[in-house]
Design a protein around this nucleic acid. Structure first.
Lengths: 352, 352
DNA sequence: ACAAGTCTTGAGAACGCTCTCAAAATGCGT
DNA sequence: ACGCATTTTGAGAGCGTTCTCAAGACTTGT
């Protein structure tokens, strides 16, 4: 029979060490002004009794809850999941967040919120009331949802917007979308490509715009035109198929494509196959998002590598260290890289 | 300036509705014995004020914490993540859990614990003390770690073991590994294969054993031999390469392989390619784990589809409904299916 | 109409912790 | 040694909820 062991509380420790509750609390929280001798004694008691403060009680009395709440888009997450599309960033985001939180004695919780719903404020408000998190991390497309940012600002909860470089309330962390697109485009131009197409994401995501900007800037620098080389998808596979077909039909001379999501890149790969174009011989392809999938396609895809986990990790750190008072207007940029695999090469001589 | 809005507490609601705290609490928790008239009045106040009970306070006073803790293997999770292997199940597990939890007013938290560490008990114990979860979900390989199950049993915390069919403390939820392997093997045998190889997972995972059992049973039923057709990997890509090479070298007549993880299936696919074997013409291939990746390989892989999300979801429900007192000995089986894609076909006539 | 029950409501303690503020102990300059 | 400033310690209240238990308001049977 499971003997129900009583929880070890701060009171037990205080008794064991022969000090007051308050002193134990100070030791636990690394408070100042405790004589080393006493501190060690208390630490020994904590160790011996295996005391760990209760999160709930800490929240109740103190000002902190030691909880960071990560908000994801329910709609997209669920759709991805049901269709087994691959939720790309969720696991990386999560791991980056959880690890960094636990390093600082915090906990991360995930909340799925539907942006398009009328109840955003209700849903999010309920979560905030129930959890009273010390910080909130917003992922696209929530990062620039004014209803959400306003709600958070009103409640005075520090928050970080991932994938956003718009200065505004909260901390913005951008993963260098403009620069990454520029990098990829420049890479293709350097290989000799002159007709470089772009399959962008939907315009609700402002990162879609930045990627287009980076692509255009690189093209301009290389003296290449962008007219007619842009298609827009919704990040999903089907939209990628449509976009790739349209792009290649309209521009038979197109020798390289940058796709703004893994799904759309995979779709482009399939479209190339159906047209008898060999990748990378006839068509070079670069995928945004360096997810595990792209290593195992045929050929493995060259991809832009955005440090999602690291970005979330930095967001967590910023939120935890918010004490400094810097809550607004900060913009942090994390640089993306390019991982070359076998889907990019020089264009075929005939068409170069 | 963020005007710091005071939190709405149960006291505010009580005042607004002109009743006692206790009555509001009863209404919130759906307690019995409240006159409908009063109940509606209280509900109206709750609605108007936007009251949501504080999780921390609920935990403090009540017996429940409304938290379910999911334990994952830190080592494997991190390795997968760092090497961008694809953490396969993490996102599905998580989503299944989070969704079901939120449907019941619970929250799910994720904890990464290192099984091989000496500190398992410490780490887990600390998490349990801090969070005081109402239930714990164990994923492989923790599901059968006796240190962990003993700790949970001692503390009297209900727990579910995912991917385990061993009756014991806690609820066991198996995803039909034996049956799934049997299904896959039978499918191959029905296509005409007579030499069906198996790349199994490491023996620490008892599901590895069940899969082997299912495979052997199906072979026996079909009157086929299993000798020399088994290789063991560690779920990772490299081990899959080694295993596939060994298997094909030792058995040149092997026309079909079942791989116990996506990574190992991808490795087998690559090994086939390097040997000039066309999949599925010369070699049929079935992957355990129907993750997004396998849809996009060339060819797309036939895969066993284990309902990870649904299983976790059922685990959560069991834990929440634990009130009934049934904490031990229960074994729940969720059936796996087979998704046919293009990596399986009849064996080449010459070798059939 | 009255006692005995049931249903409904409320008062107050308790949960485990941190906060504020006051008391005790210590250090320092002379 | 003495007074003052500073450091170290402790006592008590309070956080928002649910629990226990008792009191009041209804029923019901006779």
């Amino acid at each position: 029979m499971a003997r129900v062991r009583k929880t070890v509380t701060i009171r037990d420790v205080a008794e064991d060490a022969g000090v007051s509750l308050q002193t134990v609390s100070r030791v636990v929280n690394g408070g100042p002004n405790v004589r080393p001798q006493l501190r060690d004694k208390v630490r020994a008691s904590i160790e011996r009794l295996g005391y760990v403060p209760s999160l709930a009680a800490q929240r109740m009395s103190g000002s902190r809850s030691y909880i960071i709440l990560a908000i994801n888009d329910r709609e997209r997450t669920l759709a991805d999941w049901r269709e087994r599309r691959g939720t790309d960033w969720v696991d990386q985001m999560l791991l980056g967040g959880i690890l960094t939180c636990s390093q600082h004695g915090y906990r991360m919780m995930v909340e799925l919120v539907d942006t398009h719903s009328d109840h955003v404020e209700r849903e999010l408000g309920a979560a905030l009331s129930a959890l009273q998190p010390d910080g909130v991390i917003l992922t696209p497309p929530h990062s620039e949802n004014h209803l959400i940012t306003a709600l958070l600002a009103e409640r005075g909860i520090p928050f970080a917007r991932i994938g956003s470089d718009v200065q505004g309330p909260g901390i913005a962390l951008t993963m260098g979308d403009e620069g990454a697109a520029h990098l990829a485009t420049t890479h293709l131009a350097a290989l000799g490509h002159r007709r470089i197409g772009m399959i962008a994401g939907p315009s609700q995501y402002s990162l879609s715009g930045w990627r287009i900007d980076g692509w255009k800037r690189a093209l301009a620098e290389a003296g290449l035109p962008h007219e007619g080389m842009l298609e827009v998808g919704d990040f999903g596979y089907e939209s990628g198929t449509r976009a790739a077909r349209a792009l290649l039909t309209r521009n038979p001379d197109c020798t390289a494509i940058i796709a703004s999501s893994v799904q759309m890149a995979l779709a482009a790969l399939e479209v190339a196959r159906e047209r008898g174009l060999s990748v990378p011989r006839d068509l070079s392809l670069i995928s945004f998002d360096n997810t595990p999938i792209v290593r195992f396609t045929q050929p493995p895809l060259t991809a832009i590598d955005q440090p999602i986990a690291e970005t979330v990790s930095r967001a967590v750190e910023q939120l935890i260290a918010r004490g400094e008072g810097t809550n607004g207007g900060k913009v942090i940029e994390v640089a993306a890289g390019l991982v070359e695999r076998s889907s990019t090469a020089a264009p075929p001589p005939a068409r170069a």
